[in-house]
């Protein structure tokens, strides 16, 4: 596992504190994210792992302020640290910006960018790849159309698209799945963003392409020195790519820490269950793949106490179903949200 080491003095790029996102619907309010706190340092890769509906994508959409309707940030703070040309750092509170404000657009154009799960649907079907990359480049800086086109060809070459001079005028449906994903990555890194949010970048491509995409992200991080927030349900992906991981369940981070520590020694019963449920070559046929019993409760359902208690193997009656566990710091860089560890704190 070649996880690159991170400079210890790396400064914080973005700090998310007690983030709450809710979707008021006619049937009731869905609390998709309930008090999530994490920080991403410069040059760091943070992996957010969780089942579908755990709020991992919604958290990243909140950072970009592109929550689908009727989602809204109901509480919390997202503090962005922008490094100015003179070396000074300017902090911007993203939750206070309008989601269509020019300040927000400025952050989106130069500071952070997004790659999505399905490039086929994340790119417009009626515009060429080049049109969409050039659009991003011209939004991020003062470039003429011709300059942006040359830059786009360079970018496409740098993400490993063969024959970019021709492919730049191709439409999404004329490219293979892997090429589409690379085109989207080329668009995302266009203005050398400081944070790349990769929302399930390997889910929709087949296994050989998955490995290529991960290697590409790794080499881009080395050359561009950007931070990556990778959202996935694939523990293998975070194990290769991330420095730290945050495990999410029902809108909460249940465990957060360096990737090696968590994979070696998971503390939260949910993380332990997740790791057990990964199929490996050592798994024998008889005990097949372990699963976590039960299902994720319906989003409208209010679960008192710890959200995981109905499925937990270490359930303590009278505690877990009554009181919501607090965040407990196990080590300087490691925390868990579970009653088992709370007494020790």
């Amino acid at each position: 596992m070649a996880t690159p080491s991170l400079r210890a003095d790396a400064s914080t790029l973005v700090e998310v504190t007690d983030l709450h996102v809710e979707f008021p619907t006619r049937e009731g309010v869905v609390h998709a994210v309930r008090g999530v706190s994490f920080a991403i340092r410069e040059g760091e890769t943070l992996g957010i792992v969780g089942e579908s509906g755990s709020g991992k994508s919604v958290s990243s959409q909140a950072m970009l302020r592109i929550l689908p309707r009727p989602g809204r940030i109901s509480r919390g703070s997202i503090r962005w640290h922008q490094r100015l040309p003179d070396g000074a750092v300017r902090a911007t509170e993203i939750t206070e910006l309008g989601d269509r404000s020019s300040q927000m657009n400025a952050l989106r154009r130069r500071e952070m960018s997004l790659i999505m799960q399905e490039p086929m649907s994340a790119l417009s079907p009626v515009h060429t790849i080049g049109n969409q990359i050039v659009e991003r480049l011209r939004l991020g800086g003062s470039m003429t159309r011709a300059e942006a086109r040359l830059k786009a060809i360079d970018l496409m070459r740098s993400v490993g698209i063969p024959n970019p001079e021709k492919r730049i005028d191709a439409y999404t449906f004329e490219l293979s799945g892997g090429m589409r994903q690379r085109a989207m990555i080329a668009m995302a890194i266009g203005n050398a963003p400081r944070l790349l949010i990769a929302d399930e970048p390997t889910t929709a491509v087949d296994v050989t392409i998955q490995a290529q995409v991960i290697r590409l992200l790794q080499s881009l991080q080395d050359s561009l020195r950007m931070s990556i927030l990778i959202i996935t349900h694939d523990l293998g992906v975070v194990a290769t790519l991330a420095h730290r991981i945050a495990v999410m369940y029902r809108g909460e981070i249940v465990e957060l820490g360096p990737v090696r520590d968590i994979l070696k020694d998971p503390r939260h019963p949910y993380t332990q269950g997740l790791l057990r449920s990964v199929a490996s070559l050592e798994t024998s046929d008889e005990d097949s793949v372990a699963t976590i019993p039960g299902v994720v409760p319906h989003p409208f359902e209010v679960v008192p106490g710890c959200p995981f208690h109905p499925r937990c193997s270490a359930f303590m009656p009278g505690v877990c179903d009554r009181v919501a566990p607090e965040r407990t710091r196990l080590a300087p860089d490691r925390e868990v949200r579970c009653h088992i560890y709370q007494s020790r704190a």
Binding site: I66, L107, R108, L114
Partner: peptide, 23 residues
């Protein structure tokens, strides 16, 4: 309006009206 490419264009920082008309 709910398609991912619209969300993607927003994430790129395309001004809203231009975005709605172009995509």
């Amino acid at each position: 309006l709910n398609k991912p490419y619209v969300q993607m264009a927003r994430a790129k920082g395309v001004p809203e009206w231009r975005l709605l008309i172009k995509y």
